[in-house]
Amino acid sequence: MITSTLASAPPSLRRPPAWHRLLWVAWRRYRTTLLGAAALLAVEAVYLVDRGDHMRSAYAAAEACQPRSAANCRFAFENFHDTYANVGFIGALLVWTPALIGVFAGAPLLARELETGTFRFAWTQGVGRLRWLVAHLVPGVLGVAVLCGAFGVLVSWYDHPLNASGIQPRLNSSEFPLTGMAVVGWGLAAYALGVVAGLVVRRVVPALAAGLAVWTGLAFLTAEVLRAHYASPRTTTSQQLAGRDLPIDQWWAHGGVRVSDAQINQALQAIGVQSLDGGGNFRTGPGSASVDPIQYLIAHGYSQWTSYQPASRFWPFQWIEFGWLACLSLLLLAVTFLWVRRRAA
């Protein structure tokens, strides 16, 4: 029975799917988001390019100043540092850019279909729901990756003098996730989180909110905890870290054994100083001698350790971060695919 039916089926059934037609469908769907993302990036580009130009001039002037130890040259460097270390009011927007691009592309995809009921139209057309989904997810992923990658290039260009001057660590939390491969990973994660949020929440605005919230939590967790431990930190007793290295922890040790803050304070009582944080900050009391507490401790057999991540690990860490974010995104999208495959109404 089935054989005879298929034999009399129109020849179109046996044609391969027309992916270019589905591409139009995806383009039409993402058109507004694409324009929004382009507008956002344009605004950011204008701001960053302008500021970046000024920064480069200031940096060149400071670099050209000789001798370095002179007061006016030191002042020039300090001025450069004070002015440009902070990116300004646009900072918050920059941090959320990959999230905005990803979530606004991903969340409405399924949420709007489910909220308005148009899935009853879209998923009963000839192409079927799975091809429909794939035809939307693939361009979505690629588009978000390209836009975030471009954004990353903009940020790296802007940050170049800051990195060269050693003002900030290479692995610092504000720049690291916004450049290189990590920014692409964060964009993909935002997209995948948005898509899943849309599927679960089934309403556009709450799905946007949910996607952004989860992304923010993940970004915070990564910045505070995860990123610093992608590889075992190196340790050193050197007092001075290279400016580009990222310090993680600092502690005192005696005879190779880590000592607690209480023990440090006990040792310092002799000179009337209390340690504030177990590191380099001390509070001097009324009866304190004018002795450098750090030199005092070192003279008495204590050594100060610092754990850090060297700047050279920038690119390995970039790939690690991209790697786990990309895996997470693929996992979320696979779950979405299986869910849609199983049930709709």
């Binding site: 009853r120 139209f121 009963t124």
Partner: peptide, 14 residues
């Protein structure tokens, strides 16, 4: 084959 041969207009004409 079924998707091709069946057209559906859902409630409230989405």
């Amino acid at each position: 084959a079924a998707l091709d041969a069946i057209a559906f207009v859902a409630q409230d004409m989405p």
